[in-house]
């Protein structure tokens, strides 16, 4: 399936800067809320966003339209960069980075500017809320907080096998929900 996004990436691979500008304009508003949701800090988010699109410019030749949509391609790259940033921040010292569960809690002050809250609302409205709580929780912890399965098991106080099962069932359910919605 040929899409405008795919065409833009092909032109980027050939070094077309104008195509890159259009690609950015088309996908940055889609990617930005996700990055913001994950890294929380607007300055960090802008930084990660720039890294994501810079890497996309350099990796445009590796994009294969038969394997996935341009959205999936850029979202996957953005999500993994954002998680890398969050994990690096966490490693650098829990002392000056607010623990994720506090920053994400209701009524917090730090890191929750209107854009961040809008991003939260957008994600919640989009379909994850239709998953059973136990499944939604593990997926959100992995996808948005960047926790590994072991960390999730510790956090939700469940065996690793249960976490795996919840993730699998959650993803299956999410696909069903999204299929119905579209």
């Amino acid at each position: 399936m040929k899409t405008l996004g795919g065409e833009l990436i092909r032109r980027m691979a050939a070094g077309d800067r104008e195509a890159f500008g259009r690609f950015y304009d088309r996908y940055a508003p889609l990617v930005h809320p996700l990055v913001l949701r994950i890294v929380r800090d607007p300055t960090d988010a802008a930084d990660v966003l720039q890294e994501v699109f810079w890497a996309a410019w350099q990796a445009a030749t590796t994009y294969d339209e038969d394997r996935g949509t341009p959205e999936a391609w850029i979202i996957m790259r953005a999500r993994s960069r954002a998680i890398d940033r969050v994990r690096a921040n966490r490693r650098r010292g829990e002392t000056f980075v607010a623990p994720v569960e506090d920053a994400a809690g209701p009524g917090e002050a730090g890191g929750a500017d209107p854009a961040t809250r809008a991003a939260d609302r957008a994600v919640v409205r989009a379909g994850l809320e239709r998953l059973p709580d136990a499944q939604r929780e593990v997926i959100e912890l992995a996808y948005y907080e960047g926790l590994t399965q072991t960390e999730i098991a510790e956090r939700v106080k469940q065996p690793l096998g249960t976490v795996k099962t919840r993730i699998r069932l959650g993803l299956e359910r999410l696909r069903e929900v999204l299929k119905q919605a579209t």
Binding site: Y24, H32, Q50, A72, V123, Y143, L174, R175
Partner: peptide, 28 residues
């Protein structure tokens, strides 16, 4: 691939939030 498409659909159905303009300038 299916999971990535699902996440892309999540993003598509969410709100668009314009990034600060300096990101685009720096990139270009």
């Amino acid at each position: 691939d299916d999971a990535h498409e699902a996440f892309a659909t999540l993003a598509r159905s969410g709100e668009r939030v314009a990034p600060p303009p300096h990101v685009r300038e720096a990139l270009m």
